[in-house]
């Protein structure tokens, strides 16, 4: 199918971007285009103007500032996966992004684009939820910082206005001996996940859990974090603890039937993957501490 007619503008700086957004009512930013362009071809998205920001260097960085990893919204999946800095400081992100589509998609798609598109099971969103990331949203008026849970409004909708651009992802670097795990079930390699889970677990010298963070995709309108501290904190993470955490998750989610899978199966899968991810993250934490 072919898109509706549209105009195209390319900008290389943020001021030029804001000017373009301000000049048009129905403008849409395009970066990697991996989600937007198919939607345009299906005529589900009908922007009157596409503003191409691929040349805006100011949005392309991957740097660490103290305890925060700052990733520019234009960073491609490939850049982040290949970055030694990211592999060192936030390996959970690398593990998650490896499940995004295929190499061709990872060469073009951007993390910023994924976050703003907000598919319910997007690996980027699930990992960032688990990491407790913050998002920097910029406009001609300045910047505002939004915690990720607040940024996700509903499926395909985020807290970003037509005149704004997502500028940066700010990710708190997990403490040194934090174990991580990412688990996903999809029908084929590279497909949208049916359900995915990201987990971070920190342990003390006796192996008892001191901190845990858990997020799921595919079980709600957006990726969601679930607090399972009550089941895990202060004790070693064994199968019984993991099952208790899975029970907390089960009570907190209400997956719906959709074209991907039925709610009952997603609920079952969430339970399986939560247990697997927590146990694996705990193993990883113990190994790092050894």
């Amino acid at each position: 199918m072919k898109p509706k007619s549209f105009d195209y503008v390319r900008v290389d700086t943020l001021p030029a971007l804001f000017a373009a957004l301000g000049a048009h009512d129905n403008a849409k930013i395009v970066a990697g285009g991996q989600s937007l362009v198919p939607m345009m071809n299906f005529r589900v998205a009908q922007p009157e103007v596409l503003v191409d920001i691929n040349g805006v260097e100011a949005l392309r960085h991957v740097v660490r500032e103290g305890a925060v990893l700052r990733i520019g919204a234009l960073a491609r999946y490939r850049d982040v996966i290949d970055s030694p800095l990211v592999r060192d400081s936030v390996p959970l992100l690398v593990a998650a992004l490896g499940h995004v589509g295929y190499p061709a998609i990872r060469n073009r798609g951007t993390l910023g684009g994924s976050v703003v598109h907000n598919d319910p099971s997007a690996e980027t969103g699930v990992a960032l939820c688990c990491l407790g990331a913050e998002l920097v949203v910029a406009s001609a008026e300045g910047e505002r910082v939004v915690p990720i849970a607040e940024f996700f409004v509903t499926t395909y909708l985020t807290d970003i206005a037509p005149h704004e651009v997502l500028a940066e992802l700010r990710i708190p670097v997990p403490a040194p001996r934090t174990g991580y795990a990412f688990r996903e079930v999809a029908k084929r390699v590279g497909d949208f996940a049916i359900v995915n889970v990201a987990a971070l677990v920190a342990v003390d010298t006796r192996g008892a859990t001191t901190a845990v963070s858990l997020a799921l995709g595919g079980v709600a309108e957006t990726p969601v974090a679930v607090d399972v501290g009550a089941a895990l904190l202060g004790r070693p993470l064994d199968a019984a603890r993991a099952a208790e955490a899975a029970r907390l998750v089960d009570a907190a989610i209400d997956p719906q039937d959709d074209n991907v899978a039925g709610g009952e199966y997603k609920r079952h899968l969430a339970g399986v993957l939560v247990k697997q991810a927590l146990l694996a993250a705990h193993e990883d934490a113990l190994a790092k501490g050894a």
Binding site: I194, A261, G262, Y265, L269
Partner: peptide, 8 residues
């Protein structure tokens, strides 16, 4: 035989 059908 999707994973969902197998579980069912």
């Amino acid at each position: 035989l999707t994973p969902e059908r197998v579980i069912a």
